[in-house]
Simulated scan of single mutants.
Amino acid sequence: MTFDAVIIGGSFAGLSAALMLARARREVLVIDGGLPRNRFAAHSHGVLGLDGIAGSELLRRAKVQLLDYPTVRWLSDTVDSASRTADGFAVHTTGGETWAARKLLLATGIRDELPALPGLAERWGHSVLHCPYCHGYEIGGGAIGLLGGHPMSSTMAGLLAEWGQVTLFAHGMTLDEEDAARLQRRGVTVERTQVVGLDGEAPQLSAAVLADGRRIDLRALFVTARQHMGSPLVEQLGCALDESPVGVLVRVDAQKQTTVPGVYAAGDATVVGNITLANAEGVRAGISLHHALVAEDSAVIP
């Protein structure tokens, strides 16, 4: 059997795309390895009508609803490789199966490379965070930190002042006079001594430990994780990548098609976003992919 589309990745973007195709009565296979990026967070916030519900629960509900459509099949597996064929693409899984598809949609997400700081990884998604719109309100104000050293750190520190009293840990970065003045106006404290560890009963955070032995009390620490592609398939298929302030992103056009004809991409691999944006990206990709299928089906064959 040849599916109209194989969607690799069954998180928010992949499920949203699959739903659009299912509602067009297209044959869809979703292959998912079961490791969504937001699995470290206990709750998801900022999702209209679903605020505060765990991301895992949102995905569970979405999957149940999606599989009510008779043209959708779900496979819990990991894709090892994908290649072009005369009729589309062949997808090969770790489980040893091969699936044929007219089109591919990569919703494979990204992998976060966390700063190498003792105590950070075990607090990721709980008291060490990356998105103030997702988690800032729940901190409830008070002392929060930002681990600097990133080109956007100064801008982020000023933004975070909306959610608490901010300490920007320079972490080796330098600030020009304009940045320093702007941060002062926002009430941001700049700490130039290196952070060497985090303290508190994990996954909670009580303080940042500095190289000179001081402790800076904190309720939460924000970091900017370096992003890498969540799957080697993107580069294996030859999709072009673009640099962003946080890492590489898949280059897509307005229809969410990559630089490789027939291969679409959506979600965190294409945009710096959140659940809502990933859903929207998936919807756009699913609709665009369907339009391409219809165009092929209605083309005049000489």
Rank of each mutant, 00 (worst) to 15 (best):
L59T: 11
Y69P: 03
C134D: 11
Q65G: 05
L120H: 04
I110Y: 01
G136N: 08
T94C: 02
P118V: 14
T78K: 08
A24T: 07
G46T: 14
V30C: 02
A54M: 07
S81T: 14
F89L: 10
E57F: 00
R39C: 01
L104C: 05
S16H: 04
N38W: 08
G109D: 14
D68F: 01
G52L: 09
G49K: 08
A22N: 05
T98H: 01
V47W: 06
D77I: 09
E122T: 09
Y137Q: 13
R39L: 12
G125N: 08
G95A: 08
R84A: 15
Q65M: 07
S81Y: 01
R123P: 00
R23T: 14
L67F: 02
I31N: 03
D32I: 11
V30H: 02
T71H: 06
G95F: 05
A90D: 13
L66T: 13
L117M: 10
D32P: 01
G96K: 09
L21S: 02
H45I: 12
L129Y: 03
W124H: 07
A121L: 06
L129E: 05
L106W: 06
H130P: 00
Y69D: 13
D68P: 00
S76K: 12
M20D: 13
L50W: 09
R111E: 15
G109W: 05
T78Q: 12
A82T: 04
W99E: 12
G95N: 10
C134K: 06
D32W: 03
A100Q: 15
R123Q: 09
A107L: 05
C134S: 08
L48C: 03
L66I: 12
C134M: 11
N38F: 05
I110T: 13
E113Q: 13
P118A: 14
E138H: 05
V128Q: 02
L105C: 07
S81R: 14
S44N: 06
Y69V: 10
L29M: 09
D87L: 07
